[in-house]
Write a protein that binds this DNA or RNA. Sequence first.
DNA 1: CGTGTAAGGAATTCTGACACG
DNA 2: CGTGTAAGGAATTCTGACACG
Lengths: 108, 108
Amino acid sequence: MAEDPSYKTRKVITIGVVSELTGLSERQIRYYEERKLVFPERSAKGNRKYSFADVELLIDIANKREEGVQTFEIRQDMLRAEKRKEKKKKRELLRGEINARFGIQKER
Amino acid sequence: MAEDPSYKTRKVITIGVVSELTGLSERQIRYYEERKLVFPERSAKGNRKYSFADVELLIDIANKREEGVQTFEIRQDMLRAEKRKEKKKKRELLRGEINARFGIQKER
DNA sequence: CGTGTAAGGAATTCTGACACG
DNA sequence: CGTGTAAGGAATTCTGACACG
């Protein structure tokens, strides 16, 4: 039961299917990996495998590219978003510690 | 947004990956299809594509096969389970209609 | 019945490169 | 920069069949 996160993040989809799902060419998909926008896993013999989350991310990327946003900028945005998430996690962790010491107040 | 049910039922996984995920040989997976236990979709050029739900079903099948259950019996069980489900759906539909006419009583 | 395997062919995927711009 | 394409090879998948049991 405690195997992998979920159907959404498990990397099982080959590049051909991702191409169909996103409308992007395989060339584009590989290039976005080169630019560090997506991180597929690899099968034993080196074939790329993507998750549904990756597919959605690629669709977002495709939309931004259509708007003329460069891969570099997309990457910057992604990194910034991740930092925000980390900070949020830290805040929540801190709050958890405080609650653990001073007791949990439910509903203020 | 109203595209496909969910990550669980969308058929996007190739037989090789299904084989890794289930521990079954491709031969076995194809055979269970022949016996009408699984129903993959096909890509444009004929390659089988499975869903996570299919993968789970195949794992169930593998377990039953280990117990010595024959594919024919597994199929019978699946068909029976499906009939039960349909009846349940009908009952719920009927209840919905009754509620629509006579008003909805929440909680008994 | 359920599964392995060799067979031959077609389609997939991979990498590195040249092209254009 | 972002993407297309031809190149060559390796791995994948497909079907129908023979084998064993």
